[in-house]
Amino acid sequence: MDGLFFGLIVMVFAGALPCIILGYLIAVKQMRGLIAGWDESKISNPEAYAKLIGFSVLVLGTLIGLIAFIWYLGLVNEIGMTILLCVASLIPIPCVLIANARYGKHGS
């Protein structure tokens, strides 16, 4: 087994699959307790909030797998893969900000 294939396996099983599974559980199965710091009393629409957060994590996992596969095929080098992973890892941040702005209870 060569180093590229081993790297692909590690990225898929340690990065992509956990994100895909957690995103599915949060968005589709509505397991909102998996969201760090979850407090339902601070959210006006918990189902929509969980959908937005869960799908952003699901997209992140899909992108990690896609980036790993592109790297394995040799279409990008390690520096390019690192840049793509850093950009992809930022995707959930605006989704959390949007979810908090839309569904967070403001005021007391």
Rank of each mutant, 00 (worst) to 15 (best):
D2G: 15
G3P: 00
G3S: 14
L4P: 01
L4E: 04
L4Q: 11
F5E: 09
F5Y: 08
G7E: 08
I9S: 12
V10G: 01
V10I: 15
V10F: 15
V12G: 05
V12W: 15
F13L: 15
F13V: 13
F13H: 01
A14S: 11
G15R: 09
G15L: 09
A16K: 03
L17R: 03
L17Q: 02
P18M: 02
I20F: 06
I20H: 04
I21M: 09
I21N: 08
L22D: 10
L22F: 12
G23D: 08
L25I: 00
L25P: 04
A27S: 13
V28C: 05
K29A: 13
Q30C: 06
M31S: 08
M31R: 15
R32V: 02
G33Q: 08
G33Y: 03
L34C: 10
L34V: 05
I35L: 09
G37W: 11
G37R: 12
G37D: 07
G37L: 13
W38H: 14
D39L: 06
S41M: 06
S41P: 07
S41L: 07
I43P: 09
I43M: 07
S44R: 12
N45L: 02
P46S: 09
P46I: 03
E47H: 11
E47P: 04
E47W: 07
Y49P: 05
Y49A: 11
Y49L: 10
K51I: 00
K51L: 12
L52I: 09
L52V: 05
G54T: 04
S56M: 10
S56W: 07
V57L: 13
V57N: 10
L58H: 04
V59P: 00
V59Y: 03
V59H: 02
G61K: 11
G61F: 05
G61A: 11
G61T: 01
L63E: 06
L63R: 03
I64N: 07
I64Q: 07
G65T: 01
L66C: 09
I67H: 04
I67L: 06
I70G: 04
Y72Q: 12
L73Y: 10
L73D: 08
L73V: 05
G74K: 06
G74F: 03
V76A: 08
N77V: 01
N77P: 02
E78R: 13
E78C: 00
I79K: 12
I79R: 13
G80M: 09
M81P: 01
T82G: 15
I83H: 05
I83N: 06
L84C: 02
L84I: 00
L85Y: 01
L85C: 04
L85T: 01
L85P: 00
C86Q: 05
C86D: 02
V87W: 03
A88T: 00
L90P: 01
I93A: 15
I93F: 15
I93H: 09
P94Y: 13
C95L: 13
V96P: 03
V96D: 03
N100H: 13
N100D: 15
N100T: 09
Y103S: 08
Y103W: 15
Y103R: 03
G104Q: 07
H106G: 06
G107F: 10
G107Q: 06
